[in-house]
């Protein structure tokens, strides 16, 4: 330290240095790590021991029959209050998420593209996203409105959304395809480290699917991880996953590369359900007894 730097500056420099160092250290542990996750809603156990690690740069797909717990997993990750985690852990870049509120989890870098996005009456897309983007800035700093709109319009153009859409109330009266595009738009603006896409492909025609997949692909990179939840192989034709997992009755029963998705497409889920249990779990399974 040179003489003449005030003590305050001195401390500031030290802190900046330390933060940088911690950041470097953490990068080694960077991942969204799900370990032996059990969760239930009311008295019904849905997740029965999910373990999965998504590192930045990786795209994972979870496939599975209806009722296997795929959507529950996405809601539990995001902290939906209806679900109770009874066992296991969720750790994001070295920090446990379980005791954190949904909004904290989101600000830490977790994004959920909803299967059924909600309508927010009277709140425009632009105002909603500005509020969301503002929360990611350090306290006392405010969002540059011009920069924000520039980015918003750029992403809307890329997603084939008319700019006038930005002043429409969020998701109100949107078609299924428009809602899904709006989800991808939000993901693009908020630029999360880990994105969970819950059946984003459901209800989309092939053109909309391509647009949505294009939006996801633009965000892929060495610093972003994706968990794509889907029932069908279709979306994976456009967003090539690095890993494919199959979920049945609240557990991941098989993992592999992209070829697994193709196999499932051919054979269906029936053989796995026979082997690992159907979603209508027996009373024994409800009680947690392993088959």
């Amino acid at each position: 330290m040179t003489v003449g730097i005030s003590r305050r500056e001195d401390i500031g420099t030290l802190c900046a240095h330390r933060e940088e160092k911690e950041y470097e250290e953490i990068t080694e542990f960077m991942s969204l790590q799900i370990c032996d996750l059990h969760a239930r809603i009311v008295e019904r156990t849905i997740l029965r021991g999910i373990s999965l690690e998504i590192r930045p740069g990786e795209t994972h797909a979870i496939m599975g029959p209806n009722g296997s717990g795929k959507s529950t997993l996405s809601k539990v990750l995001a902290g939906h209050p209806d679900y109770e985690v009874t066992q296991g852990s969720i750790v994001l870049d070295g920090v446990s998420l379980l005791e954190r509120e949904p909004d904290e989890r989101a600000r830490m870098g977790l994004f959920l593209a909803f299967q059924y996005p909600c309508e927010i009456p009277g709140v425009s897309i632009a105002n909603f996203l500005r509020a969301a983007a503002q929360t990611r800035l350090p306290e006392g700093q405010s969002l540059s409105v011009t920069d924000f709109y520039q980015k918003l319009y750029q992403e809307m153009d890329a997603l084939g959304m008319q700019r006038t859409f930005s002043s429409r109330p969020l998701n109100a009266g949107f078609s299924g395809g428009e809602k899904k595009r709006a989800e991808i738009l939000q993901m693009a603006i908020l630029h999360p480290r880990y994105s969970v896409l819950d059946e984003t492909d459901s209800g989309l025609d092939i053109d909309a699917l391509k647009v949505v997949a294009g939006g996801v692909n633009r965000l892929r990179g060495p610093e972003t991880g994706f968990l794509i939840i889907t029932h069908y192989q279709r979306l994976l034709d456009y967003v090539a996953p690095d890993f494919v997992h199959v979920m049945v009755a609240g557990r991941i029963v098989q993992s592999g590369g992209p070829e697994l998705a193709l196999e499932l497409e051919k054979r269906g889920y029936g053989f796995l359900e026979e082997q690992y249990g159907s979603p209508d779990a027996s009373p024994l399974a409800e009680a947690g007894v392993q088959r």
Binding site: G79, P81, E101, P102, D103, F114, P117, F128, L129, A132
Partner: peptide
């Protein structure tokens, strides 16, 4: 509650 959860999931505090 679902609409509120949606907002919270975008990082917007209560």
């Amino acid at each position: 509650p679902e609409e509120l959860f949606y907002c919270l999931q975008r990082g917007i505090p209560l």
